[in-house]
Structure formats: structure tokens, C-alpha cells
């Protein structure tokens, strides 16, 4: 059907666009905030979208935060961990952990708690953003029953447009998948009433690792 392409294109206006303004970001003013207020907006939007939220002061405290979340959910099964979290001190908590080591190693059955990293978040709507690469199995975001996501505060941005600038600073190539995730999976197909856990996770918890510059001077979070 090679000539289908020519046939269709011959019927379309083909002028090369002159330089235009669509490259420029147009972000809502409410999303352009200093870091402390950005954190507040992010937490508000997470709550609005039915996600939960906790904070830790350092990456080494992540296993403890996961254990607290697991207990709060009343979850008793094994906890599936993304590859990028393998180096953390999981031996200090009493969890049955499974570190995903390769493509065929991710359990796909329903009902599991899964923990993974994200590469950025947009405070605009309380959205975490993951990208596929050699360490990130994108399926983990969608097959879990309970999803727990670790976010470094230095990766918490304001509007969506900043996500791409942030990514460009780390890699030039577009990843296969970039997933913007806002709260747990839901559907309102039956009688326009929202039910959580349609196909993806029924619960979403974010663990924010505070940046050194914004950490409170003393005290536990």
C-alpha cells in the first residue's frame, strides 16, 4: 500500500511550518513555585487524586517507610522491588522482599505490592513520572495491586513542561515509554461513579526523599 501514503499526502497541505511558538512552554502560573511551596502543592494534589504520601530524610530510610506503609495497608504478601532500589538496606526491616532481576523475573499475577523509583514528578497535578530504561521495568507501574513510588525531592518540578527539560539534561534520546501517573487506577464507567483499582494499582503511595537543602534542622519526619 505504498501508494496510499502518496495518495493521502498529495491531498494534504504540505507547506513547511514557519518558526512558531508551540515549542515554548505555556505553564499555569500556579505551578511556578519555589521548592517549599512546590512540595505543599504536590502533597495537596496527591491527596486530591487519592494517593498517599510520606517523607524521609535520606535514601537509607526508604525500607522503613515501605515497611510502615505495608503495615498501614494491612498487606501480608511479598514486596516486589525494582532493580534500582536493590542497594538499600532492606535487611533492617521485616519484609519478604523480591528484587526483580530481569525481564522474566517480574511476577505479573494480581494482588502484589510493588516498589519502584520515578525519575521526576510534577507538582501541577501531583503526578509522578517514570521512564523505561535498562533498570526500569515499566510493567511494574501497572501490574501491581499496591504501588509505592520513591521520589527524590530534587526531581520534584512544577509544571509538566519542566519534565522534558529535566530529562533532556540527563539524556538526549526519547525513552520508549514516559509514563505520567496521577493517583491510583480508577474507572467511572458504571453509573459515573468512581471505583479505584480498575486495571492498575488500587493504591498509590509516594515516599519523598527530602533534599539536603530543604531538610528540617532536627527531628524525625
Amino acid at each position: 500500500m505504498a501508494n496510499a501514503r502518496e495518495h493521502i499526502l498529495s491531498r494534504l497541505p504540505d507547506a513547511q511550518p514557519a518558526p512558531h511558538s508551540w515549542q515554548e512552554p505555556f505553564a499555569p502560573i500556579s505551578t511556578l513555585l519555589p521548592s517549599d511551596r512546590r512540595r505543599t502543592l504536590f502533597a495537596d494534589k496527591l491527596a486530591q487524586n487519592k494517593a498517599t504520601f510520606s517523607e524521609v530524610l535520606a535514601r537509607k530510610s526508604i525500607p522503613g517507610a515501605v515497611a510502615r506503609h505495608v503495615a498501614k495497608q494491612g498487606y501480608a504478601g511479598k514486596v516486589i522491588l525494582g532493580q534500582s532500589l536493590a542497594a538499600l538496606p532492606w535487611d533492617v526491616v521485616d519484609l519478604e522482599c523480591h528484587w526483580v532481576s530481569g525481564e522474566n523475573d517480574l511476577p505479573l499475577e494480581d494482588g502484589l505490592m510493588m516498589v519502584s523509583d520515578c525519575f521526576a514528578a510534577a507538582a501541577e497535578t501531583g503526578t509522578i513520572i517514570t521512564r523505561s530504561d535498562q533498570h526500569q521495568d515499566s510493567r511494574l507501574n501497572f501490574v501491581a495491586r499496591h504501588h509505592c513510588v520513591v521520589l527524590d525531592e530534587r526531581d520534584l518540578l512544577g509544571p509538566y513542561e519542566d519534565i522534558w527539560v529535566h530529562m533532556q539534561s540527563q539524556q538526549k534520546a526519547m525513552p520508549r515509554s514516559v509514563n505520567f501517573i496521577t493517583g491510583p487506577s480508577r474507572t467511572a464507567d458504571i453509573e459515573q461513579t468512581i471505583e479505584l483499582g480498575a486495571h492498575g494499582p488500587a493504591s498509590l503511595h509516594i515516599i519523598l526523599v527530602r533534599a539536603e537543602s530543604t531538610r528540617p534542622e532536627s527531628g524525625e519526619l
Partner: peptide, 18 residues
């Protein structure tokens, strides 16, 4: 925003996890 907004670009890269 919807719960999921996905930007999908081409097939699996050689080193991608999935």
C-alpha cells in the same frame, strides 16, 4: 489530568528492561 498519560516512542530499546 487522567490517572495515566503515556508517551510511547518506538519499540523496546536493546538494553531496556521490557
Amino acid at each position: 489530568t487522567t490517572t495515566y498519560t503515556s508517551f510511547l516512542t518506538g519499540p523496546k530499546r536493546p538494553k531496556d528492561a521490557n
